[in-house]
Simulated assay, not measured.
Amino acid sequence: MIELVRPTVDLSGSWWEMVDDFAGATIHGSGYRPSDRDVLRDPAAFEEWVDWLGRMERSDEALPVGRVPSSNRWIVRDGRVVGTVAVRHALTPSLLAEGGHIGYAVAPGARRQGVARAALGQALRLAAARGIDPVLVTCDVDNTASARTITSCGGVLEDERDGVLRHWIRTGAPAEPIGPGPVEGREARLVPITAEEAAAMRAGESRPGWAEGYPREDDLDAIGMMTSAPDAWSPRHVVRRSDGLAVGSIGCFGPPQDGVVEVGYGLVPAARGGGLMTDVLSAMVRSLEASGLRVVAHTEPDNLASHRVLARLGFRRVEEPGADARAEWFWASGAAADGVGEP
């Protein structure tokens, strides 16, 4: 039986056996470096280190530069440590390029026995419980075993960057059905734009709490469709949690039609490229899907960043009858795309 357990000194004996099995190789998702060995061999230092691994799960813990809150677990089989997993609660630019949300390693003596797949599956459930959806999981381009494991758990390859394969996996994190109130994402709140704020945006006013460059032209187009007080389908400010600034907007092109709703979204240039849009669109799509709706979107053919975000969330490009694919591409979430031919 494979379990993910919190690091504990009670498993120190089999922990060190696992470390020896790696023979000095990097143990991904462990927080351990071979250079730490001499220090951590002291039981008091090992206990302090194990305690620190546990504290990394707390959002209020002061962490070194470059570290993010993480849920650290040891992979245990039949009472013995055979690997490690770290579920990172956020992505830095470095982790977005390499490392991802989940890092894991299985000791050489326990490989090719289904341990990695079982552990990754449990790590995905741990990520879902924390509202992380989708997750990024990476591996070296020549690590075919890890690539197969990731794919078997639902991973969809986005690209290869400097010898690293980057896969995204939907976790099915729970969400509240869409309503007239804010939608809560991990990195942003999606707050309905009021009629008074819409009037200020049309008048070209800049308000405290609005980032430089907001609203954009597309944001003004979105509020142009408002005909009444905000409702579930109205445009929303994307309010970044890290600084409380409105950095873009997201909303629906009107109420659902036959159970299908179209979303539109965008960020000011300074807020792009750090994974924020993935979190924002995920929160919106999950909330819409929790209401039993299917979700579609249109993009310009050259908007590669938007294409990548949609693909991360399981959208597929499909043919739209009568549409000019040179002007716009049509995307549909997995359920909405069923039965529609791909180009």
Rank of each mutant, 00 (worst) to 15 (best):
G13P: 00
M18L: 13
G24A: 11
G24F: 12
Y32W: 14
S35T: 15
D36C: 02
L40D: 10
P43G: 14
A44S: 10
E47M: 11
W52P: 00
W52Q: 07
E57F: 04
R58C: 07
D60A: 05
D60S: 11
A62L: 14
V65L: 11
V68Y: 08
P69W: 02
G79N: 07
V87W: 07
L96Y: 06
G103W: 08
Y104C: 01
A105N: 03
R112C: 08
R112Y: 10
A116T: 02
A145R: 08
T149Q: 05
T149E: 04
T149C: 07
T151E: 04
C153A: 09
V156Y: 00
D159Y: 03
I169Y: 03
P174F: 02
E184M: 02
P192W: 04
M201Q: 14
G204V: 10
E205Y: 00
S206P: 00
P208A: 13
A211E: 10
E212Q: 10
G224T: 05
M225V: 15
T227P: 00
W233D: 04
R240K: 08
G244I: 04
L245A: 08
I250Y: 06
I250C: 13
P255W: 13
D258E: 14
D258Q: 10
G259W: 15
V263H: 03
P269E: 11
G273F: 05
T278D: 04
S282Y: 07
M284A: 11
E289G: 14
R294K: 08
R294C: 02
D302W: 13
L304C: 01
A305S: 13
R326T: 08
V340L: 09
E342K: 06
